[in-house]
């Protein structure tokens, strides 16, 4: 993740607290979605940015997850995400984001 963005996420997490905050992702493939989910939960795995070694443990979701989709305006969702629902490997993306959200990869 861009280093500037890591710093912003870090600051917002400190200001807001993770009970009222979620990170919402829009990456098109499982590896990049996993990388971002890992960065905001365990810390930056590339050890390049401000979140290196900073396990924020933020609740992270992907826009393709059913429980996110059902909270959103259906027409708007179809317009913006309809194509990706068809083109992306939805199961794998959701699997990896959920893995990190639920504490996977720790230890």
């Amino acid at each position: 993740m861009d280093l500037d963005d890591q710093a912003n996420v870090n600051r917002l997490a400190e200001e807001t607290g993770k009970d009222e905050m979620i990170v919402l992702l829009g990456q098109p493939d499982p590896n990049s979605a996993g990388l971002f989910a890992e960065t905001v939960t365990r810390g930056d795995p590339t050890w390049a940015g401000p979140l290196a070694g900073v396990p924020l443990g933020l609740p992270v979701y992907h826009i393709l997850e059913e429980e996110i989709k059902e909270t959103m305006d259906p027409d708007l969702y179809q317009e913006h995400v309809g194509l990706m629902e068809l083109s992306a490997d939805v199961d794998e993306i959701v699997k990896w984001v959920k893995f990190y959200r639920e504490g996977g990869g720790v230890g």
Binding site: M1, D5, N8, V9, L12, T16, E20, M21, I22, V23, L24, L25, G26, Q27, P28, S32, F36, V40, L58
Partner: peptide, 8 residues
């Protein structure tokens, strides 16, 4: 909820 949106 406060949302941090990271798109691509």
């Amino acid at each position: 909820m406060q949302v941090v949106a990271i798109g691509e």
